[in-house]
Design a binder for these strands. Sequence first.
DNA 1: TAGATTGTTAATCGATTAACAATC
DNA 2: TAGATTGTTAATCGATTAACAATC
Lengths: 219, 219
Amino acid sequence: MQEQETHALSMQGVRRLPYYLKYLKDLQGEGIQHVPAAAIAGSLGIYEVQVRKDLAAVSSHPGKPRVGFSVDGLIADIEHFLGYDSANTAALVGVGHLGTALISYGGFADYGLDIAAAFDRDPERIGRCVHGCEVYPMEKLGAVCAEKRLMIGIIATPAEEAQGVCDQLVAAGVRAIWNFAHVKLRVPEGVLVQNEDMAVSFALLSSRLAQALRDAKTE
Amino acid sequence: MQEQETHALSMQGVRRLPYYLKYLKDLQGEGIQHVPAAAIAGSLGIYEVQVRKDLAAVSSHPGKPRVGFSVDGLIADIEHFLGYDSANTAALVGVGHLGTALISYGGFADYGLDIAAAFDRDPERIGRCVHGCEVYPMEKLGAVCAEKRLMIGIIATPAEEAQGVCDQLVAAGVRAIWNFAHVKLRVPEGVLVQNEDMAVSFALLSSRLAQALRDAKTE
DNA sequence: TAGATTGTTAATCGATTAACAATC
DNA sequence: TAGATTGTTAATCGATTAACAATC
């Protein structure tokens, strides 16, 4: 019975899961069947207790004293928790450099994401096939999304167009938006939005660097 | 005197600053000179108190009752806090789709990032000029970074090459690494690393979506 | 003065860390 | 049994939210 994990995992915890998963898959590749929490913690530079708490929240099979956790079991549990075994089908809008990078990024296949169709308004790009993914004109967005029952809309357009594209995706029935444009999207209740904002990430880096340089000067 | 802001701002707070900045610059463009915290909070959908706490941590000029905060003053303070007025010069390694997207992304100029040189090992790409940025061969990395005194290394290579590139960048004197490869980098003490991991971001989206779909089924 | 708006102190909430009891 | 490793309960830490006092 895999349905006890209602919640209890912090959002930070969810962010750690992909790292656990990567490490566990490496072990799996080496044919290792059991792993103690301490080993996972060591590979990521965090505390064992945190790993145990995270795993307790997602895993259906508890770890065994003296043995550790089942590698295969954990992989299955984490993938289930993260929904990698659900239908994560996506439509990508904006086949510029970033969009192409996303389609081409091999890592996603591992993580259950299937970009099933791409859209662009540039006639030059329409009809092309990028890494096995066909590029459709914007006019077909509604029909293709509905037909393929796509769940996720990925926005990789310039910021000015993002809201319009978002509205079209929502109208076409997607349940979640992964937004790479530097803009705050308005969506109806019930649609998830995840922002991937490079400007925010850079701000963090820049402030830490500025702080470090100031500290260095003071000493 | 602008040097009282030792700390006191949460990391989450730092992540909100770029949004404040964007809103404030819009106001500046409209010629508005003062803004109350409530207006900033409203535009972002957060509480006023949080905005005030964040601003108190970074701003040198306090806000005035009945008037609000000086738009120009806040912009200057936030940019200073984030280090956008420092020399944020960067070397980018890996001029694939993602690397090209980063160089071409107009937004960074606003945020104080200057990608001054790019590197690649593909002879086809070397010597080209992408959005005003010259692409050098990997062999020149050390010399160019030293000569231009570049502070930040941006890694946009495949995961397998990331650690090697990181080592070269560190040897060339960069103080911070912005890593887009899905790998955990080892760096010497004192070098900052900021990971921008799409797999992590997607994991968050996927788990939220899976949870939402489960909830919908239950009801 | 009255009211809008600020800044600060206290209360709550959430996540991490530490201490310890349970089990193969 | 002894020891490795687990899971849980309590303590700490950090960030958000609420309540309130200060000021133009």
